[in-house]
């Protein structure tokens, strides 16, 4: 997949050029490209003087980073304790069945990515489903797919 290297340069320029800035840079990459493209990681490694192995180690350690492109719509199912006891698993099952995707997978047409998150701190409205940045609270399992499709 081709990426805009100008964007990579832009991100590297607005962050401090020190090894300590690597996580912040990767976060900016993730936000811009919705994943961490290899050429971007290589460029960051060179510029911030962080070995590429270490960049890879950070990229695979933190949940926020993805090494494969994510879809246009990222569907996140909260599996915090409150959501769990209020049936988050059932919502996940409906979505898995509806989109034919497992957590972490992206559809072939790049439209959907399904993810499971630990807790988004919206426990009072459990169970929570997040479609891109829109929070849906008190979701019933029969409503889940509708919310995914509509936004």
């Amino acid at each position: 997949m081709n990426i805009d290297m100008n964007k990579v340069t832009e991100i590297l320029e607005r962050n401090p050029k020190e090894p300590g800035a690597i996580i912040a840079v990767l976060q900016d990459f993730q936000r811009e490209f919705r994943y961490l493209p290899v050429p971007a990681m290589v460029k960051a490694s060179e510029l911030l003087h962080v070995p590429l192995s270490k960049v890879y180690s950070i990229a695979t350690f933190y949940n926020a980073f993805s090494l494969t492109p994510r879809g246009e719509k990222v569907i996140r199912i909260c599996k915090g304790t409150a959501c769990h006891i209020k049936g988050a698993d059932k919502i996940l099952e409906q979505i898995e069945a509806g989109l034919k995707l497992k957590p972490g997978e992206t559809s072939a047409d790049m439209k959907y990515t399904v993810e499971v998150v630990n807790c988004v701190g919206a426990c009072a409205m459990a169970p929570v489903l997040i479609v891109n940045d829109k929070y849906h609270g008190k979701v019933r399992c029969d409503q889940a797919m509708g919310k995914v499709k509509r936004g």
Partner: peptide, 10 residues
Amino acid sequence: EGDPGAFMDR
């Protein structure tokens, strides 16, 4: 605030 089920600090 990583504990699932906690949102005071948020």
